[in-house]
Nucleic acid binder design. Structure first.
Lengths: 211, 211
DNA sequence: TAGATTGTTAATCGATTAACAATC
DNA sequence: TAGATTGTTAATCGATTAACAATC
């Protein structure tokens, strides 16, 4: 799915950084922040900050900058983090556990509720307070009260199969931590964590500098 | 550092996907693959495949496509994964451990050799066969035989401090898994894992579709 | 040979930057 | 008021797509 919210994806991807900075300032009880300050903290140009802000509807004041609380509200809403969401974790391995343990889901209004696993060894156990359930149990719960967001953390070989299963049971957005490219219907979004791309950029830079 | 290897970053970030697909075909002992096939598997246009390939120097054959082994070699070299590299992990928490456990570093010719931690509770222990050492011990080792690539997995509050330390001891490329924007000298590259940007894209898409 | 497929050049599109007018 | 800062419009830049020539 090419997900045409009117905000460019490049812009959207920068919002979490702006938001984190604004939140840090709010904690220090600042009232306003200028585009120049945000730019410095987030390592982009100040023109880009102002351009990006136009999509949120927040309006700054000459001389003062952007009102921090207004900024936080506007960014949070633009991203869609104003409404609470539940999340299903598919796969009961280390990645699931670490994600549930260290990723600050609460900060983004996201609540992981369930781990789905095909491995009988995990069934009935808990991961960070979440029950680990079978695909059948997952189907049952989805019929009652569907969750639309899932993280996929299985091994690459089962990724497509598990993804099909999630989609069949009503999941509409998949965060893919596997190294497999998923094929999904056009009304489902997949975002790849793509961490090997990060490593590619680093390796290339080092190589370019003969390191 | 704006790292001007002559390959556009957007292109470079797609290479790992192409490479994974080519490796899968090589295992099935295929000899050639067309741009149309790669495009389908990696979910991009076939024109883009051919454009991207021009930067690797690999040359395809009309009627047949690209020779798979040549493609793998060319992509591997373009990314810089042909030369072996060592990696230091800064931070001894769950993220480090999971990364060391599940990320297929060997596939990219990268060997994690060491965990650096300021937490005395971890010193002298091992994580996945790697010794956990103090910053002082790290400094000593860097003087002898420097490693240029590091992963940063500490908590956000210590991130800048630990990053300064890495840079001071000769690290030239940092893969930043914290949610803090790092400030580094211009000869050091930082790549942010930026997983909250992924979540922003998913949240926005769901919101745009009222889910 | 004809046809499939690559590789290259030009056109389009989108995102960033620059210039400057508006505003408090 | 003057000056700092936003917001908007135009220019630039880079990446993707389209068109088509080259090749086996």
């Amino acid at each position: 799915m090419k997900c045409d919210g009117e905000i460019p994806e490049a812009t959207l991807r920068r919002y979490p950084k702006y938001l984190a900075f604004a939140r840090a300032l709010a904690e220090q009880e600042w009232d306003y922040v200028t585009s120049a300050d945000i730019a410095r903290a987030c390592d982009v140009t100040e023109m880009l900050i102002r351009k990006d802000m136009t999509f949120t509807g927040v309006t700054g004041r000459p001389h003062l900058g952007y009102p921090i609380l207004g900024l936080i509200a506007a960014l949070t809403e633009a991203i869609g983090w104003d409404r609470p969401r539940r999340l299903v974790i598919a796969g009961a391995g280390k990645v699931s556990e670490t994600l549930a343990d260290v990723f600050p889901f609460a900060r983004y209004n996201v609540t992981p509720t369930l781990v789905v696993s095909e491995d009988p060894a995990f069934l009935g156990k808990e991961i960070h307070g979440m029950p680990v359930v079978s695909p059948e149990e997952f189907r049952r719960r989805q019929q009652e009260d569907p969750v639309s967001l899932a993280v996929l953390t299985t091994g690459g070989s089962r990724a497509q199969h598990v993804s099909d299963d999630l989609v069949e049971h009503g999941v509409k957005a998949i965060w893919n931590f596997t190294d497999t490219s998923l094929t999904v219907p056009s009304d489902v979004v997949v975002v790849d964590a793509a961490i090997s791309s990060d490593l590619a950029v680093l390796s290339r830079c080092l190589t370019a500098r003969s390191l």
